[in-house]
Design a protein around this nucleic acid. Structure first.
Lengths: 352, 352
DNA sequence: CTGAAAGCGCTTACAG
DNA sequence: CTGAAAGCGCTTACAG
């Protein structure tokens, strides 16, 4: 048995230079000149630049950004904190943000909090430690933002992707209150008086209540359900309760489309007709809303617009060290209703 | 007009120390000791450690990882390259990977390639420059991996999340060939002889063809469609062609569930019965497959398992500088069939 | 038990 | 046109 093992051939195929020093040694120039040359400085003549570049290319040299960042004080990296990427709207947001950031030369560090404030705090520290140049965050809890205050003090560029306009931070968000208001109003205008809500509270609940009030309808607490989640299964499980009410609900607004789709599935299994026996409107207008059967009416979520404006605003904050910080900017986007079959048309028989 | 603007009150509420130097000055110890203390070294007495920690906490000090990384030669950051995060399976993969990585103390830098080899190459360079400790990649093209060779030379920890077992890299992937084989075989066993395929080629096409061959069925090229994409709309648009064939297809296998759902939607609009007139099996077993109407049969994709094994293997490669590198490890996971209504039961009337 | 020094791989004034 | 030096904020031997 041979104790001496030859290096495999391919180990020698590529020469690798990991540092400026290596290519300096190879070319005979100083680290200094190599650095300048590789960044295309006019201060080094073209011929030299080409010579150095070709050696760098041969070695497949890639600059060490951590060293570069240490001196430049910027990492060209943005932290993105989301509650959950499996939610269709947040998937879309992550997708748009990543592309926009990449175009601008930034990399995205993505952290997920699963709606836990503890995770959110930790994420903030992780991203600060990583020295990200800015943060985009979809907060776990719209009402509890105090842990972001410290960032504000250090003038850390931060843009929230959801929340209320009273939040003391830069913010780009859909107007959930208005969305719920519009959906509820639409159902009222169709003739419904027993409109149920599946929602964990917050802005959507407020919009729902306001619409009822504005149309002189009583707010019946027994019509308001906290389905214990935002997914298909939660809607499915919560649906039966609608028909135990006396009188039963004739319409339903849900905090997410999956909740609505789950409720509809249960109804179909019971041969309850949608929208004849239950008119349904969801929230977010996800892909599945378009091709469910019946098509699901929904409140739109403009992920592209939110992402674009948020990234744009973040870049402003990054490039304007402190001036922009003093004045926070809020953009609240008005949602539309995407009406399909599930919400139905005007009721044939007006319920008394 | 007053030219002198007072600093707002809140600018002074928090004191901020961004460097070890600041807290060294505050406590009177050297940078050195502070560094040790903050990392809980036994070499500095507990009393001193506590004193230093409390000052650090008061200043809300967070270590600068870019400086730390420069000396430790590790960034505690993993690069993840996916073709697209809006695809349900890749969303799931990104989600699992992020959580696993977070548990291990790593942050995830996510880059999307949109299936472009150019983007993929650029992503590789970006991540190398960022000095990520390892990479997890879902390659744009299973057959074109040459740009990963350079990483191999530098013993850069890399695990592929899809591809063929012949790829010269560490790999954890679903066995798409086998998945397509099983689905096709199932359709054959149900009595189908005119089985169409919506797929861009590759492993799934191979599995489909092999199953036909193994059952002595002719491979009819007119049954094989390249739908020009993997989404709902592509399936919807490609479906009519199935019924222009002579004789028409009686079964359909698609490369993704959305393709199947789109095709089914078109059929429903034409009052074509699923599965009676067309038995359908999709790929990936996404959420929507469960609650579509009819339920969509599909080939499973075990995102949790792939993510877990991939992260585990990557950690091995990271901790074992070179030994593990010489031998690449491949794990090809066998998919199952998730059978629901869309694929039907045995054909009542056996087609000649 | 604690500090001064060197160094991680770069960039940025500053000389010459 | 090019190089030597200082420094970014840390950690790691090395002294004392």
């Amino acid at each position: 048995m041979n104790a001496y093992v030859l290096e495999p051939f391919w180990l020698r195929v590529f020469e690798v230079a990991s540092r400026l020093k290596d290519i300096a040694k190879e070319t005979g120039y100083s680290i200094n000149t190599v650095s300048l040359a590789l960044r295309g400085s006019e201060r080094v003549p073209e011929a030299t630049r080409n010579k150095i570049s070709s050696v760098a290319k041969k070695f497949h040299y890639v600059p060490n950004n951590v060293a570069r960042s240490l001196v430049s004080q910027q990492t060209m990296t943005i932290g993105v904190i989301l509650t959950d990427i499996t939610s269709p709207i947040l998937t879309a947001v992550a997708h748009y943000i990543e592309r926009l950031l990449a175009q601008l030369g930034y990399a995205m560090v993505l952290i997920t909090t699963d709606k836990s404030l503890e995770h959110e705090k930790r994420a903030l520290d992780v991203l600060r430690a990583q020295q990200v140049d800015g943060m985009l965050v979809f907060p776990a809890n719209h009402a509890n933002l105090s842990h972001f205050e410290a960032l504000k003090e250090t003038a850390y560029p931060l843009v929230l992707l959801a929340g209320r306009r009273t939040a003391p931070f830069d913010l780009i968000a859909m107007d959930d209150t208005l969305g719920a208001y519009k959906a509820t109003r639409h159902l009222i205008e169709l003739g419904h008086k027993r409109i149920a809500l599946f929602s964990g509270g917050g802005e959507k609940l407020e919009g729902y209540q306001q619409a009822l009030r504005d149309h002189d309808l009583e707010i019946d607490q027994s019509l308001i359900f906290e389905p214990g989640g935002i997914d298909y299964e939660h809607g499915y499980k919560a649906a039966p309760a609608l028909f135990r009410l006396e009188p039963p609900a004739t319409a339903l607004l849900t905090a997410t489309d999956y909740l609505a789709l789950g409720a509809i599935a249960w109804c179909k299994a019971q041969s309850i007709k949608i929208p004849e026996q239950l008119a349904v409107i969801g929230f977010d207008d996800i892909e599945a809303a378009k091709y469910s059967d019946p098509g699901l009416s929904s409140v739109t979520y403009d992920a592209a617009r939110i992402s674009k404006r948020a990234v744009h605003r973040l870049m402003e904050l990054i490039s304007q060290p402190s001036a922009a910080q003093k004045q926070t900017e809020k953009t609240i986007i008005e949602p539309d209703l995407a009406l399909r079959e599930s919400s139905g048309k005007h009721l044939k028989v007006s319920v008394s």
